[in-house]
Amino acid sequence: MPANLTPEYRVAEEKFKKAQTLEEKISALEEMLAKIPKHKGTEKLQADLKAKLSKLRKQATSGGGGPSRRTETYHIPKEGAGRISIVGVANTGKSTLFTVLTGVSSQVADYPFTTRTPVVGMMTFEDIKIQVIDLPAVSEQFMLNWVPQIIRLSDLILLVFDISSLDPIAQLNEPLHILKERKIELIPEYRELKEEEIGSHQSVAKIRTLVVSGFMDVDGSEEIFELLKEEAHVDFEIIPLSSITGKGVEELKRKLFRGLRINRVYSKEPGKKPSPEPFVLKKGSSVEDFAGKIHKDFVEKLEFARVWRKGEDKDGIRVSKDFILQDGDIVELHI
């Protein structure tokens, strides 16, 4: 029986071939197992993938099994519509922001380097959930060796600094310099990347980043913020945020969603209401991509689709499979 491997599986397989680290290989294998068609023709391939994954996970937890000193590592399965990692030097309010976004408690203290392991939560944005990771400090004083790898595997970075600190500009610049030395370049969220520039397998990982100025509740913080924007000499948009009053949180969530470059698309069967739960696609995806998300056979059998878009024809418009979808579109496939 033929395997009939899907294009999505082939993409994951290519990621595995290009993977250079254990974390990247494990992530790619998990994606391959999730995307592989489940039928008799793929049973042996599924078993082989599971065996490889088991072997790599053992290596990750044992530090490779060699004579050298054990290297601690963390594997965090991707969940939700995207992955956002919170980055910054010590005591900038990262953990407080994480709790505000996710509702999950992360250890907070007045002394530095409180967070020593990754803390994972899910942020709700309207009708989807997005994975958020609170990471230990990225600092010249101390940085755990596995932190850069999790940053590499993130879809978006939230860089946090404390507006009330003695030198907020240094807090902002320090993680940028440290990560650049480790071949990770944090770039402004508004910058567009070519497809070949995206991915943790690149020699220099370029990751879109939003910058947040925390502790905006401190007296005089607004004046300091305006001065900082003039003096920082960075290309990033700096977002003011109050974790205490919640001012700016909803706007930040919208900007995080935008930064992930994803669309929510809703399926609809003829004569029925649209599904309340969306499919999440990359920006620029077509009706054909959407059909493949629902079922691999739909791609070949698809004749046309009808799309409802906010503010347009209430009866929907008939489109071909190469029609590019937008966030909020409702799609009815005709096979």
Rank of each mutant, 00 (worst) to 15 (best):
E196T: 02
P270Q: 15
M143G: 00
I86F: 12
T115I: 06
I26E: 14
L53K: 06
F225N: 08
G64M: 13
T124W: 14
P77C: 06
L193R: 02
H75N: 03
I294R: 05
G328F: 05
A90F: 01
V108H: 14
T61W: 07
R258W: 14
F142E: 13
L135R: 08
S200A: 10
I178P: 05
E23D: 09
L172T: 01
A109E: 12
E185W: 06
I157D: 02
V307Q: 07
A137W: 13
R208Y: 05
L210D: 10
M123P: 00
A232M: 15
L156C: 05
M122S: 14
E223G: 08
A19E: 14
G64T: 07
T21I: 04
L29T: 03
P148C: 06
S105T: 03
V100T: 09
F236H: 01
R191F: 08
K194V: 02
S320R: 15
K180V: 10
A232I: 11
N4M: 14
S200K: 01
T114V: 07
L29S: 08
D329R: 08
Q20L: 12
E140F: 03
L260K: 00
I157H: 09
E269H: 12
D313T: 06
K52M: 13
Q20C: 02
Y9E: 00
I224K: 13
L33V: 04
E72V: 02
I84S: 06
E13P: 03
I238L: 12
P112D: 03
V299L: 08
A34L: 11
D167F: 12
D329L: 11
E250K: 15
D127S: 03
G284L: 09
L153E: 11
R261E: 02
R191E: 12
E8R: 14
T245Q: 10
V89G: 08
F113R: 06
K183H: 11
K314W: 09
S243Y: 10
D48E: 15
T99Q: 15
G199S: 00
S242Q: 09
L158V: 04
K129P: 00
M123D: 05
P112W: 05
D315I: 07
M216T: 05
E277W: 15
F142M: 09
G328Y: 04
F236N: 08
T117E: 15
K180N: 15
K50M: 11
F304L: 02
M123I: 05
K321N: 03
F304Y: 05
F290I: 01
L186D: 04
N91E: 09
Q46L: 05
V120D: 14
L156F: 08
M32N: 06
D297H: 12
R318F: 04
E223F: 07
I163A: 02
K268M: 12
R309A: 00
R258C: 03
N145I: 07
P188N: 01
E24S: 08
K18P: 07
Y74I: 00
